[in-house]
């Protein structure tokens, strides 16, 4: 019997596989296809305080092994989420995590404060790293000080455990991870998408309506894996790894690099059953290796 459960300290997951924000809607969209209770957890689509229109289409462009998106965090706003969606997620026996967004620090705080007063959430993921919504400046995850301030501010108003989601679009991601830890974040998740461009040569126009977007999918996996490895060596709090995980082997590699749990994003589009299949694959692998608890492999990279 393999124990797939993962203890993040502030949160115990039945297995290490979490559906990633932005690829899994508000959670309910995949319900017709499988039992969501199979998941270790799920992170709902990013929430601002107010409803948000999102970016002009086209919003998607394919690249070899990758997907560039510029959705722009279109969404219903946190109050509609609390009123209409959360009650429908509350009965799930999986960790439901809300993804918190903001145009500025105060909005992050308002969203987090509202959510921490609702029942049914296991944690908040602080989205300080979306590449598609910057307003004439950098997102907080591109600056350790801004990261520290945002995490600190949210900590003041929210009682829920906080996972800070980091951007790969930085020179030294470990500096930002350390800032999140110092500000009191209970975990970090990385990486969000890589800022990217796709061009239609025929028209010489960008393929995306918003010009730039965020690259995800297998194309970014080695880069994400490297960043998880670097961050996990430097910080004490748990790391949740993501970036191009498409199968159990990918997920296990992230754990060996130092991730205590993983998120699966773009794979949900290509194979809607990706998450349950990865969970099964991890279990089969652990059995074949005689591993009784997954914690044995976290950070076990031999270097």
């Amino acid at each position: 019997m393999v124990d797939l459960s993962v203890d993040l300290g502030f949160l115990k997951l039945k297995n290490p596989v979490i559906a990633a924000s932005g690829t899994f809607g508000y959670g309910l969209e995949f319900q017709p296809l499988y039992d969501l209770n199979l998941l270790g957890g799920l992170v709902v689509k990013g929430l601002y305080f107010k409803p948000r229109e999102g970016n002009p289409p086209p919003r998607l462009a394919e690249t070899p092994g990758g997907l560039i998106n510029s959705i722009g965090l279109q969404g219903i706003g946190v109050e509609a989420f609390g009123r209409e969606v959360l009650p429908r997620l509350a009965g799930l026996k999986t960790a439901v995590i809300a993804n918190v967004c903001g145009e500025e620090e105060e909005e992050y705080a308002r969203v987090a404060e509202y959510l921490s007063q609702q029942a049914g959430l296991a944690a908040l993921e602080l989205n300080i790293s979306c590449p598609n919504v910057r307003k004439g400046g950098k997102c907080p995850a591109q600056d350790p000080e801004a990261t520290y301030r945002t995490v600190k501010r949210v900590q003041q108003v929210s009682s829920l455990p906080l996972i800070t989601k980091l951007s790969p679009n930085v020179t030294d991601i470990t500096a930002v991870a350390l800032a999140a830890q110092e500000a009191g974040s209970q975990a970090v998740s990385l990486v969000n998408t890589f800022l990217a461009l796709a061009i239609d040569l025929r028209t010489r126009k960008p393929k995306l309506g918003n010009v730039l977007g965020g690259l995800s999918g297998p194309a970014i996996k080695p880069l994400a894996l490297r960043m998880v490895f670097e961050v996990a060596k430097k910080i004490e709090i748990p790391v949740i790894g993501l970036g191009g995980i498409f199968n159990a082997q990918d997920a296990l590699e992230f754990m060996v690099a130092g991730a205590s749990a993983v998120q699966v994003g773009t794979a949900n589009f290509v194979n809607p059953l990706a998450c349950p299949e990865i969970i099964k694959g991890i279990e089969d692998w652990a059995k074949s290796q005689g591993i009784s608890s997954l914690s044995e492999i976290v950070g076990s990279l031999k270097v």
Partner: peptide, 16 residues
Amino acid sequence: ESIMGCGLGACWGCAR
């Protein structure tokens, strides 16, 4: 018609 990510309403990639 549109390019689509998920086809399930989860990603909002096909908005119009």
